[in-house]
């Protein structure tokens, strides 16, 4: 019984294979007008209307799958477009950043040329950290003793805006490859300064908590100061050799914004620093003291 079944199965299989091969051979052997081709044409003419009907009936199904496929394709396109956009955005940001850095460095260079700071051997440094508080008291820079930076050295900077260049503080703490700069807005910093146009002297001290506001102290009722007057460092004024200002003379600090209780002994001159301390990216540390910082 088993043998019979096996034989039968093999016979059927052989028959089917042989039939297929005969069909193949015959199909290849005959011309386009041959019997098999005629059968195909006949079947096709019968099946074609059914096929057309089925095609129409199944169009919604096709459309549904097509919609799904298109949606998936569109999603793929969207992802690609988003990746492209992100890549371009990164490049644009990098370009913008490079432009801004270039502008800052150019302005620092201009500052060196204009104020004749080359003689102080400025060391350009990048800001690598800022005080996280709103007080903006300190900055961290990436140059330290290995670059000749030492505590007490004055620091100038530019904020990238047109006239945002000037003194921002002094080096407070130095490591081998980094330093901390205490800003002029810190209460521990006081800078002897003068009004550029009429040599009114005083000391610039911070209005703590507001980096936009400094105060020129110790002016008298006879000192005539007006808004928009420029305040610069005085440098060393004492004749004594042991009392020297850490700041060279003539470095811009800020511009007078208002004068409270004008022409009185309690006169208070407010000034705005030239440098927006929140936007500083590069600074220059003046590493050499020339002539005891005297004019």
């Amino acid at each position: 019984m088993y043998d019979k079944t096996v034989r039968r199965r093999r016979a059927v299989l052989a028959l089917l294979v042989v039939s297929s091969l005969i069909l193949l051979t015959a199909y290849f052997g005959e011309s386009a007008g041959g019997g098999l081709h005629s059968v195909q044409r006949g079947i096709m003419s019968v099946v074609a209307p059914i096929q057309e009907g089925a095609s129409r009936a199944l169009k919604p199904v096709r459309d549904l799958f097509g919609w799904v496929g298109d949606t998936l394709d569109a999603k793929g396109d969207l992802e690609k477009a988003e990746k492209d956009r992100d890549a371009w955005q990164k490049r644009a940001i990098a370009s913008e950043d490079a432009l801004r850095q270039n502008r800052h460095l150019r302005q620092l260079l201009d500052l060196d040329t204009t104020l004749g700071l080359d003689q102080y051997q400025p060391v350009t440094s990048r800001v690598i950290g800022k005080s996280p508080t709103v007080w903006y008291q300190t900055l961290d820079i990436d140059k330290g003793t290995s670059a000749g930076v030492h505590a007490g050295m004055p620091v100038i900077a530019t904020d990238g805006s047109g006239d945002g260049t000037g003194l921002i503080g002094r080096v407070d703490f130095v490591a081998r490859n980094a330093a901390k700069v205490r800003l002029i807005t810190d209460s521990k910093v006081a800078v002897s300064a003068r009004v550029l146009k009429n040599d009114v002297f005083g000391v610039v001290a911070p209005k703590v908590g507001d980096p936009e506001d400094l105060v020129l102290k110790y002016t008298t009722r006879d000192d005539f100061v007006r808004p928009k007057d420029v305040i610069v460092t005085t440098g060393t004024t004492s004749a004594r050799g042991d009392i020297q200002s850490p700041f060279p003379p003539g470095i811009p600090i800020g511009q007078v914004t208002r004068v409270d209780e004008e022409q009185t002994d309690a006169q208070e001159v407010h000034l705005k620093p030239f440098v927006d301390l929140r936007r500083v990216e590069f600074v220059q540390v003046l590493t050499r003291r020339v002539n005891g910082n005297r004019e």
């Binding site: 039939s19 297929s20 005969i22 069909l23 015959a26």
Partner: peptide
């Protein structure tokens, strides 16, 4: 399939067998 789609007759048959 070969007949309706006017393909080489016998080819699909052989493969599907």
């Amino acid at each position: 399939a070969d007949t309706a789609l006017v393909q080489t007759m016998g080819l699909s048959s052989l493969v599907y067998v």
